[in-house]
Design a protein around this nucleic acid. Structure first.
Lengths: 197, 197, 197, 197
DNA sequence: GATGAATGAGCCTTCATTCAT
DNA sequence: GATGAATGAAGGCTCATTCAT
């Protein structure tokens, strides 16, 4: 009986994950707008109706996928985060994590970029995502207080700190950019120059 | 007869422009994916069939609209460009032009952001657009040669110079950002710190 | 063991009745066509699959519900029926019973009206229902033989005797009709005038 | 050029009529709920999309069909109507018209019966239909004033005058009824007995 | 007996595009 | 050049029903 239960639970999660994976893969292949529910279903090896067991509707499927990725990205960004380290080191570490995450999960990153520029984007409860980045915000505030980084609104700091990375890692914007160690180091060094006091 | 011809040509351009304007306006209102050809036609006050007289298909309509906007943005960016000015001043001038263009034409900017993250993006002949930015590239190269700005690939320099501006000006990414003179100055100052040697 | 069985049987009937009640209630709320099996199941607090334990399929569920209501209506119509009473009194009594039943069970009546105009209607074994009305037929025949009511086919007599009541009591046909005692008396008096010799 | 125009107009009406005819025919064959837009389209020999050129949506198609039939029925009912004739004769004439219309257009009648017991029924602007029956109402009022027919609410009079006819002519309710001249005369005679003073 | 999960078929509607006029 | 009408294909979603548990 116990085994039964486990099998059932695992089965469910497997199917739900298969749907999400198919969603991400399909968006990578044919784009956001062309990724219909029935194509996703076919890709995931399930019936279109099955998707509506795990998600309320297409919107819910895409938003859930997005939030899940963003949270995992937040976790990755914060990995090895140590608030006792110098501000510079902590931010550089986060930047490298970001580059690594994007390199290791290009499909996930690509999905979020497409999602962020679609109407679905407005349906996301941003607070839920920002929670994962709270330590980063606190670190920036600490850097400001210690007069290590510029006293600018968070959005400006973040725009200069990490947004260049997003654009560099986006093959649609910079198809020729190579995330070599030298390039990464240089990109992050420039980002630091932008925000440091 | 000559007059007749001119009238006809003017008429044509009026209709073509009406279609493009309707496209941009509709994408702003209901998003990229929901902007169908017939809705655009209705918005422009023409028949759907008429659109296919001026454009090969929907793809051509969107791509043409995008290129036209990008070129006008390139022109705006380069306005008052003076290669004899100091590198710093010239780049800051371009940055301010960029902010001003985006502020004055939010609809156009919004369209390009949506377009850039759609599958249509891959259909654009990038060379055609980059031509408008040639003077900027030359200026950057000059700055590198003069050891004024860092010796980094163009894409890195551009990513730090202008991409933060795009993200800041995009209400979907930074809904609360205000393009006040102080914020603009600060953003551009940070960008300069990023690339200067 | 005997008690156990009785409990089980009672339980069964409770569930079956819950399904039928949910069917009637849902048809009243959202109409016949929109009442799907899964919605009925949710309304009855059971799984969709459970419905298929008590009924062969959707068709069987609806037909069974209809027949059950029609039989109970037949019983109500014949209540206090006394074949020794004058024909007029017996028929008027039946008419008043009919009005009362409809007023007291508007939901059931509404269901039958919708059912009677659906394709499911053809699946009903009419003989089963007419059995409940046998005494009425005999009374009519007696009235004919005694030259009290017109010598017309039963269907004509019934059409004039009770069908006006159905239409008057149907809020979709006569939304403003009030089943006040005066209106009921008048309606039945008119019906009697129609059939009496 | 003139001919062109006529051809175009005729073509349009032919197609629109074909859709309405297919709707009525299909509802007769497979019932109201099962008559989907695509089946109607196939029956009419057009694409499903074409239906949406002539009608806003399925609801509009069904409601328009219903109103058109009801108006034609109203016209038929009032044919040869002469307000100077005796009340009895005028009403009997209308009743015969009604029987004849139903016999000649069983498909149309069947459609309205199904429509009247569907949720779509509530979408009909009843005033539009009642207009066609105005002369009938005036005749009834005249009969009341002249103390020829009973002083009862219109709905009671109509329920007894014409509703029995509807039920008799509905093959689902009275599958065996034959609209022979004798039966018709008898039915109408009974109806008159019901309402006459 | 009872269930939640699963499904292919079908729902209504809109799509990008073409045709006759 | 310009159009309204027309279309097959596909969109997101729900259906009645069955299955393993």
């Amino acid at each position: 009986m116990f085994i039964y239960f486990r099998i059932v639970r695992v089965k469910d999660e497997i199917k739900q994950d298969a749907i999400i994976e198919a969603t991400v893969a399909l968006v990578n292949e044919i784009g956001f707008a062309a990724s219909s529910v029935s194509k996703i279903a076919k890709r995931a090896g399930v019936s279109p109706a099955t998707i509506y067991i795990y998600f309320e509707n297409k919107e819910d499927l895409l938003v859930s996928t997005y939030i899940q990725i963003k949270k995992s990205l937040g976790d990755a960004l914060m990995s090895n985060f140590n608030p006792t380290h110098p501000v510079h080191d902590a931010l550089m570490n986060a930047g490298k994590n970001l580059f690594k995450y994007i390199s290791d999960h290009r499909e996930l990153f690509y999905f979020t970029e497409q999602f962020a520029n679609s109407p679905y984007c407005e349906l996301v409860n941003k607070g839920e995502i920002e929670a994962a980045f709270q330590p980063l915000f606190e670190l920036l505030q600490y850097g400001i207080d210690q007069k290590i980084i510029k006293d600018a609104p968070f959005e400006l700091l973040l725009a200069h700190l990490y947004h260049p990375i997003f654009s560099l890692a986006n093959p649609r914007i910079n198809p020729d950019f190579q995330p070599s160690p030298e390039n990464i180091d240089m990109a992050m060094s420039m980002a630091w120059d932008a925000i440091k006091l």
